[in-house]
Design a protein around this nucleic acid. Structure first.
Lengths: 337, 337
DNA sequence: CTGTTAGCGCATTCAA
DNA sequence: TTGAATGCGCTAACAG
């Protein structure tokens, strides 16, 4: 890497002052056309690249977003994570921002951790992905200054964080309506991890919709556990042991649905003839299982993009108060129902 | 975020000099126990966090790894990417390094791009994930200084880059042997994207193994395309149109295998009775499809970890010449064969 | 529109 | 072991 080319070198070469060169590069409009062109020419000639550490130190900002992924290893979020991350990266690139990634496995993330990062100048803003637990900073008084932090996938508005996620209720309402229309009257809900906010929201959506339709008592709940496939098989075994089995099974995730269906099919039952199964998330594979899974597609890419936009809005003061941004999911009917 | 606490503040509070405070924090052993303890106490009291921009500028390093993901959106690498990224993050955390992420969709990455990042001080080293094309810097003479760049998943040693990947041949040899042992004598290989290095390597591994077993002429090739499921269905249609169909199908990825199997099952053929199908990659879902897919599991997490270790080794001069690090995959037999 | 002057916060010489 | 001084490379006031 030969040696480092600095503004001073460009100043020497062009005969201009360092500050002029700096301006020509960062604020081309505040400089004469002539010097701008000269500087640009010499800069590319010498292969000048502005040193980010120096820029950051001088400006006091970093132009980077820190992504804190909670259960990024757990099967829970992992498959969805890719889409979100892609959206985040794309939007960040569009806005000229960097993306820094850090994982927090199974540990709760506390506000003070995040504030520490912010303070250290690691990043200007933080994206919390799939963070169930958020411990607000105890020592922060009511100084209403809003932190540049956005939660993805979990509604943390009550903790003062703007959140971006899918309108989950809508998806489950669509599933219920579809199954009822297909003639189903007995339902099972395969639950996600106990205590999960998603779990809670989703189960309630199903429950409430069924109640509205006068079928509130026709729903049982099967314990799944984590959002993964193995938990789905466990729930399926419980299902098979039932004396009177529901005809329609609504799962808290595609992973659960796949594991569930695998076991059901293995037992000799037919899907959807004997049991209709619906998933949730919209994983790629759902369209290619046999039978293909009915599911609800989450707009992961869009969620990632929007989260970054929201962060930018907070950063430049266009958003000053916590809010919930909920995007619409897409319901797709396939062979499993 | 109240205001920024700096070394100067600690110096004031402790009555020590800034440089002493700095030393106490970064080189505790070069300072008396007394001052060390004093500084630590006051630092935590005031909530001091060292400013990374300043440290980076002063030291001339960044302690961060830049991850450049190539086709990270394409279905190709995406599912595997999660595992790798997790491994990278874990190891990076263990070594006290940051991870910065950037995507390069469908664009070839050139050495000069990477060198630019390095020069700008965005990162100290670079991890290329799934980079098929690598254009060496034309202007770099034979200055044998090795760049802190590692390629993951693609063997770029010929271009002078140390590479970390799976020993792909082994996996396909295992598949072939298994199928032959099961009595199969006619094979099809569902290919990945044309021109892909993986595609080439994998097909050859199959071809060569069959030749060794005297079955070299019993292999046909079905064009798949990208590593995704849709391409698998396309290949399956071609397969179904064949007059004389092979009894065993070896796919270039799990996605292809899933799409292929979906279509095959939909046509009324049975798996594995009529057609045996094997995938490659070890995606989670393969264990829960019906029938479950025989496949080869890539040690993605391990690959990520090792790549970071290798980067560290290059960085501190323990590795000075390009090499290929190939990890062993795991073959798993399931219902589809 | 351009040059001068000061820092940004820290690490690291060199003396003491 | 500690203190004083210098510089990392760039940006941003402030004059001119």
């Amino acid at each position: 890497m030969t040696k480092r080319v600095t503004l001073a070198d460009l100043a020497d070469q062009t005969g201009l002052n360092i500050s002029t060169v700096s301006r020509a590069l960062s604020r081309p409009d505040r400089v004469s056309n002539e010097t701008r062109r000269l500087v640009e020419k010499v800069a590319s000639q010498l292969g000048y690249e502005t040193n980010v550490a120096a820029r950051n130190l001088s400006r006091g900002t970093t132009d980077t977003i820190l992504v804190l992924a909670s259960s990024f290893s757990g099967q829970a979020i992992s498959p969805i994570f890719t889409g979100i991350l892609l959206g985040v990266c794309e939007e960040a690139k569009a806005l000229g921002l960097n993306v820094m990634l850090r994982q927090y496995l199974a540990q709760p993330i506390s506000a003070s951790d995040v504030i520490r990062y912010l303070q250290a100048g690691v990043a200007d803003s933080v994206l919390l992905v799939a963070t169930e637990q958020w411990l607000p900073a105890a020592d922060r008084g009511p100084d209403q200054e809003m932190l540049p932090i956005v939660s993805i996938f979990n509604d943390l508005t009550t903790a003062g964080l703007t959140s971006v996620m899918t309108q989950e209720g809508d998806g489950y309402v669509a599933i219920v309506d579809h199954l009822v229309e297909r003639g189903h009257r007995h339902f099972a809900f395969v639950s996600g991890p106990a205590g999960s906010g998603h779990e809670h929201t989703r189960y309630n959506a199903v429950k409430n919709r069924l109640s509205t339709l006068g079928l509130g008592k026709k729903l049982i709940r099967l314990e799944g556990g984590p959002f993964d496939m193995a938990s789905g098989t466990k729930a399926a075994q419980a299902f098979l042991a039932l004396k009177k089995r529901p005809t329609a099974v609504i799962c808290c995730s595609d992973g659960l649905a796949l594991g569930f269906m695998h076991t059901i099919l293995g037992s000799g039952l037919r899907v959807p003839e004997d049991v209709a199964i619906a998933g949730y998330d919209g994983m790629d594979y759902t369209a290619f299982t046999s039978p293909a899974l009915t599911t609800v597609i989450q707009p992961t890419l869009e969620i990632g993009r929007v989260a970054v936009q929201v962060l930018a809005d907070i950063h430049n003061g266009r958003i000053t108060t916590p809010r919930l941004v909920a995007l619409a999911p897409t319901f797709v009917v396939r062979q499993s129902t």
